[in-house]
């Protein structure tokens, strides 16, 4: 058990090294002199003197060959130094830490809504296969899945903010600012979560051990709650794990529409203003979040699926 956890954690190290190499190359290959860009940020001037630039180059190790520069850069990143935004003159780490909570709240609440609604909906649709609820779910998931987020966001804004005036239009502040964005994100997730849960439930209900459970004299409710649901949860969990990672980076459109100062918006702004240090920081953050979430999903498998627990490592 312990060995497998350590094994899984060690497995992410090569992934992180790969990510760091790609991110490093992105910055090295980007046009412009990083030393000059950094100096502009630190000194708050458009044209730093050539002497200071060459000093900065030496300090940043830019006069070294590429592989040496990578290790210098990596040691700085590991110490939490990701450079400065040349636009705001603030450190990249500060900008990211400022944006992270907003994205985190948005992702968690969208995920929570989709779990609370999507999973019971999928279970109910499977239990009454081809019933009214099943047809409704199919209809809902096609609508939910094929409506673009920006359209859904605008429709909900028109209804709840403009007409009914019960929710704020955009911006950040309290919890009410997160309701509409997380609902918009959740609708697409519910559409797929409920379908996967339904299919997975139907598969499990066909299994022999469900037949055995019936022949033992269990009632349908107990069979579903004790034998079926946990076994049917695995594929849904995999899907939700990858989607959770996606929510951190993919909420770009929703964050922009609702003017939420999250990671997605930070990334888009960085791309627009060519703020390469911020972009680099965002990339590393997304990658780490994605890897960590996948690790957590893997570890939760060990709890959910006894078949993994005793596998040879």
């Amino acid at each position: 058990m312990q060995a497998i956890v350590i094994h899984r954690i060690l497995q992410i190290i090569p992934v992180l090294i790969g990510i760091s190499i790609i991110t490093f190359l992105l910055v090295s290959l980007a046009p412009g002199d990083p030393a000059e860009i950094s100096l502009r940020a630190i000194l708050d001037t458009d044209s730093p003197s050539p002497e200071s630039i060459s000093l900065m180059r030496a300090e940043m190790g830019l006069d070294q060959p590429l592989h040496i520069r990578y290790f210098i850069w990596l040691s700085r990143v590991v110490q939490g130094d990701l450079g400065y935004s040349y636009l705001t003159h603030k450190s990249t780490v500060y900008e990211i830490l400022y944006a992270l909570p907003t994205t985190f709240i948005l992702a968690v609440s969208a995920m929570a809504i989709s779990i609370i609604i999507g999973i019971p909906l999928g279970i109910a649709a499977a239990i009454k296969q081809n019933g009214i609820l099943d047809h409704f779910c199919r209809f809902f998931s096609i609508i939910g899945n094929s409506t673009p987020e920006f359209f859904m966001a605008i429709v909900l804004l028109l209804i709840f903010s403009i007409e009914l005036k019960i929710l704020p239009v955009a911006g950040s502040g309290g919890f009410q600012y997160f309701i509409l964005p997380s609902v918009v994100l959740a609708i697409g997730l519910i559409a797929i979560t409920s379908r996967i849960m339904r299919t997975s439930m139907l598969d499990v209900l066909e299994e022999n051990y469900i037949l055995t459970a019936r022949s033992k004299g269990l009632d349908r409710k107990t069979i579903i709650s004790k034998h079926a649901i946990k076994n049917a949860m695995l594929p849904v969990l995999t899907y939700m794990g990858t989607q959770f990672g996606w929510l951190f980076g993919g909420a770009v459109i929703v964050e922009s529409i609702f003017a939420l100062p999250g990671l997605g918006r930070l990334t888009v702004d960085a791309v627009n203003t060519r703020d390469i240090m911020i972009l680099q920081g965002c990339m590393i953050t997304f990658a780490i979040i994605f890897v960590v979430i996948n690790l957590l999903v893997d570890l939760s498998y060990i709890y959910l699926n006894p078949a993994i627990k005793y596998e040879e490592v």
Partner: peptide, 14 residues
């Protein structure tokens, strides 16, 4: 009671 053809799926894997 029933003893089925597929013993590997006749018991709850969890």
């Amino acid at each position: 009671q029933i003893v089925s053809q597929h013993p590997d799926s006749a018991l709850n894997p969890r």
